[in-house]
């Protein structure tokens, strides 16, 4: 009873729900990003995304936790193509979390929007509620043609039919970095110790990842860049990805 009262006190403390152990965030500089999609393959490799096949693509059932969206601006010959990598924004007020009846997607103590595959019952409500459309559903159980399954990352589960999935900010890498930090007798992970697969691969170094709780981390500094903005900010989902908009050449 006493324990419960203590907990209640803790929960009622103002600001309790805003505090995270870590607060992982990302910036994507659209002035660097070339739309090369190296990040897309990196994510597929790291996170055991299925090879769905031509038919499923035709049915728009592809699974890409990270996709690059394209937008044309202007008309020929004054035309431009703009790219924007779109992945889960790990919203601090994630609209996808409230409607999940079984709490298969929730906010963890690192401020991540997590997805618990083996708890998901496949209502797809979260996908409807997500304004960024970055949640992907397993319409089938996908198989890997032997021996392609040998490349599967043992740190990440493979998913079965009926389960929702999405970008996890490569939570397995975060876990590993935390374990290393613990092994080293440190309490916290250092800036730069966690690099999600997409960030790692990016040939233009467009993406920066890190802990927003640490004011000195690279990502915290990038967050303050005047070119920064959040996609669909007006929806107040508090996305944790800040995009830096494409700059104009001063020439």
């Amino acid at each position: 009873m006493g324990k419960m009262r203590d907990k209640l006190k803790q929960y009622l403390k103002p600001g309790y729900y805003e505090k995270y152990d870590y607060h992982w965030g990302m910036t994507i500089d659209l002035d660097r990003c070339t739309g090369c999609e190296a990040c897309v393959v990196a994510c597929q490799a790291e996170n055991n995304l299925p090879i769905v096949g031509e038919k499923r693509f035709k049915e728009r059932r592809e699974i890409k936790w990270l996709r690059v969206e394209r937008y044309w601006e202007g008309e020929y010959p004054n035309i431009k193509l703009r790219f924007i990598p779109m992945l889960c924004q790990h919203c601090d007020q994630a609209p996808c979390e409230t409607p999940c009846p079984v709490a298969a997607t929730y906010h963890n103590q690192d401020g991540l929007n997590t997805q618990i595959y083996n708890r998901c019952i496949g209502t797809r409500t979260c996908a409807v509620y997500c304004p960024y459309e970055v949640r992907y559903f397993n319409w089938f159980t996908y198989k890997w043609d032997e021996p392609l399954e040998q490349q599967l990352n043992p740190d990440v589960t493979v998913r079965e039919k009926g389960v929702m999935e999405k970008c996890t900010f490569c939570i397995q890498r975060i876990r590993q970095a935390k374990d290393h930090a613990k092994d080293d007798g440190r309490r916290r992970v250092r800036d730069g110790e966690v690099t999600p697969a997409c960030v790692q691969s990016c040939p233009t170094k467009a993406m920066v990842f890190g802990d927003l709780n640490d004011p000195n981390s690279r990502v915290s500094k990038m967050y303050k860049n005047p070119r920064g903005y959040k996609v669909l900010e007006e929806l107040n989902t508090l996305p944790k990805i800040v995009y830096l908009k494409k700059a104009d050449s001063d020439v």
Binding site: A42, E46, L148, Q151, L152, A197, S201, C202, P203
Partner: peptide, 28 residues
């Protein structure tokens, strides 16, 4: 399990293109 850029290598400095990462698909 995964191919990443070798950060020691002056050509790609730890980065890799899509084709480079798909090398695993060639192996397996």
């Amino acid at each position: 399990k995964k191919i990443e850029g070798n950060s020691n290598h002056p050509v790609n400095q730890g980065r890799l293109c899509a084709m480079g990462q798909a090398g695993l698909n060639a192996l397996y």
